[in-house]
Amino acid sequence: MKSFSKLDAIVATLDRVNVDTDQIIPKQFLKRIERTGFGQFLFYDWRYAEDGSLREDFELNHGRFDGAAVLLTRANFGCGSSREHAPWALLDYGFRVIIAPSFADIFYNNCFKNGMLPIRLSEQQVEELFERARSTDGYRLSIDLEKQTISDEQGAQFRFDIDPHRRESLLKGLDDIGLTLRQEDRINEYEARRIQFQ
């Protein structure tokens, strides 16, 4: 798995609550059998009109967010389908960090498996970041996973919470499967005492 420690990048905003994974990556693009190449389809129905042209009413199409690697959004981001194609699409498009007041469980989990960092902040802190991103062209945030901080050039600084195990895995880019396989003796032992009926 890819590791993550620090990032300083432009922030794109998506001011909507309950963004579901069907919006992040619509179903017609789930038929690929690879993990890559999904970025072009990210937020497809919101990004493109039916004739394939860019929709001006969609925030990510605004030039000011070009090159953004941080996505700032609202509560319950990534709800709905378990499709890991959603973080794959966000990552492939260029996002490494997503900041929101809350995330859906499966999506949150899927992010870590792909070297992405979802950060939960309070509603109030998220609102403040939205304000700052609105009023500053090319607004950037520095994220430091080791120190668990988010800061900007104007002096805003927030600390964020993260499960220590997830933090460790992400910092080191650990391979979960490799780690679990090292516990094979324990798995064998469990299988020997496992409850099952013939």
Partner: peptide, 11 residues
């Protein structure tokens, strides 16, 4: 997610 599908398949 798919990464966990792989995890369960393997372990």
């Amino acid at each position: 997610g798919t990464s966990e599908v792989e995890h369960v398949l393997a372990t």
